[in-house]
Design a protein around this nucleic acid. Structure first.
Lengths: 330, 330
DNA sequence: GTGAAAGCGCTAACAA
DNA sequence: TTGTTAGCGCTTTCAC
């Protein structure tokens, strides 16, 4: 493994000059610079990242800790973060906390230990402890879910009013008993979507009933069980607001299992416009969240704060849009 | 930022002892060790990763370079890799090459510069240059797609015979004109699936015709265009083998656009058992690849080679399984 | 514009 | 069992 010393020797200059040339500093004789570059190429020189990072006390790496790599919503965020980071020469390391606070904590530790330049985090809970990050003043942006009074920028979606709008849409389509399947209590997006659902019922002077709402992990299987439970009742709901697209899969499976027709027997609107949503029969109505933009904005905020740590903390709230398709029409 | 020196001072020992205690070496007096640990906790000590990596000349990090984060097939692989790595205390950084050889090269550079312990790569092409890795003897495992005579383990899927089996299934179901939509030439999985398709036609003494096959990027939009093109012909195919699940989305959109009924008008079998596959109407028949296991095996091979670099290179070929559902039945 | 030299924080000889 | 010390590869003063 050629080091910068080897390159310097080969080019007949000091390591200092080699370093300057390799980093494109202007204060170096073009002839020398060329010799250094040539030597580096010839030796197949690759800078030693750890050494550089140690010396510089900083890295050009962002950590992106998301709660579920297998959820298209989060991978879209990842794309947004990555595109911004790439453009300014930063790398992104993706860590999957799997909705597991323990794993999340481990990855935060790793991020600190590797001295990453900044962290984008979709917290597993509002109580996620980011003090370690704050203590070392590692820039942090929370996405999708807010963090209780943390020193961090946040990029959120106005998911409560989106849920309200979606529910109001179901009401306007003539569904009478509208239920809701949402995520675990304490997960802000889950609570917000449930709240928005209730907002709409209240606005329409409908009674809300605990019998019509279910909570489950943000996964297909939990949603499947919840849907079976909800829809097996004789007084079953005739429409459902579903809190994300993985859950929607479980709900649609339940419908099919119970021989209930989507749209006709049970209207459905689900959060997240998964690529397959238009393909089911009838096509699935969704609340489309601007996932890519969330990632993009988050990365921009992070880069800005890396450059200038004195910036005030901001919360950006993006809008979601209701896309009505056949599944919410009688 | 407390350093190990601060911890040592606070505990009243030398840095060496502090280091040993922190790393759980047995050769240290339990009393002292305890004092060190207490001091570390009190100071909120977090080891400096770059310094440690520089000194140790190794990192407990694996790089996983995949060609599409938004494809469930690859995220399943990621889960497999991650689970194995976690279990032995390694971190995984996920890099998205986006089927772009340029990005792929950049990430390989990053992996080398950060001196990762090993790389799992789904190469964008067979010609992907991994010489840099080989030169520094960084352990490498290629997944999904083979690498031409590279010093690497490989974990592949017998996708050619799976394609043959899927096509034979379509033939047995009475489809007469079977077409194929596959990925770009030069991408081994794309070529293999096409070859398997032809194998089956040949075995059934059917003529193969270039008019029935199309190539496109492994994306929904490309497959959509290809399907529209293929199915608009008066002599259109009455069944299609589709090379992955993102493409399947495009194909199903095309079917719907052209008002052709899945299964009845056009039988379809697609690669990859996406979570939504059972939900379309009729449910989509698929070739299910053991993605999670690919990742798991790859990580195990990598860990083994990190431990013992003299191991012979192996190629593991896993089987795919045909899951027939309604979309391939008349 | 260039070089000599210090030092980032850590681990691992080597000595005691 | 513990401490002293060198040095991983790099960047960056500082002096010239």
């Amino acid at each position: 493994m050629a080091t910068i010393n080897d390159v310097a020797t080969k080019a007949g200059v000091s390591t200092a000059t080699a370093s300057r040339a390799l980093n494109g500093k202007s204060t170096v004789d073009p002839k020398l610079a060329e010799r250094v570059l040539a030597a580096a190429a010839e030796l197949g020189y690759q800078p030693n990242g750890p050494a550089r990072n140690l010396r510089r006390q900083e890295t050009a790496v962002l950590a992106l800790i998301i709660s579920d790599v297998e959820n298209p919503f989060f991978t879209s965020i990842a794309r947004g973060v990555e595109d911004v980071a790439q453009a300014v020469g930063y790398s992104v390391v993706l860590c999957n906390s799997d909705e597991n606070p323990e794993k999340e904590r481990r990855y935060i530790d790793v991020a600190i230990q590797e001295r990453v330049a900044g962290v984008v985090l979709s917290p597993t809970g509002t109580t996620t402890n980011v003090d370690l990050l704050t203590a070392r003043s590692t820039p942090l942006v929370a996405v999708d879910r807010p963090l209780q009074d943390a020193a961090a920028d946040m990029v959120l979606v106005d998911t409560r009013s989106a849920a309200k709008e979606a529910t109001a849409h179901l009401i306007s389509q003539g569904y009478r008993q509208i239920g809701c399947i949402t995520g675990p209590a304490g997960v802000q997006t889950a609570d917000d979507r449930l709240a928005g659902y209730k907002d709409a019922l209240r606005a329409a002077k409908r009674r809300t009933s605990a019998k019509l709402t279910r909570r489950a992990e943000y996964r297909a299987d939990g949603a499947y069980a919840a849907a079976i439970d909800l829809l097996s009742d004789s007084d079953r709901p005739d429409a459902l607001l579903v809190a994300n697209s993985t859950m929607a899969i479980g709900v649609l499976e339940a419908l099919s299992k119970l021989d209930l027709r989507l749209g006709t027997d049970v209207g459905v609107v689900a959060f997240d416009d998964a690529p397959w949503a238009p393909l089911v029969n009838p096509p699935l109505s969704v609340v489309s969240q601007p996932a890519y933009d969330i990632g993009k904005v988050a990365a921009q905020l992070l880069m800005a704060r890396i450059t200038d740590s004195s910036l005030p903390y901001t919360t950006t709230t993006l809008q979601a849009t209701l896309i009505t398709r056949g599944s919410s029409v009688r």
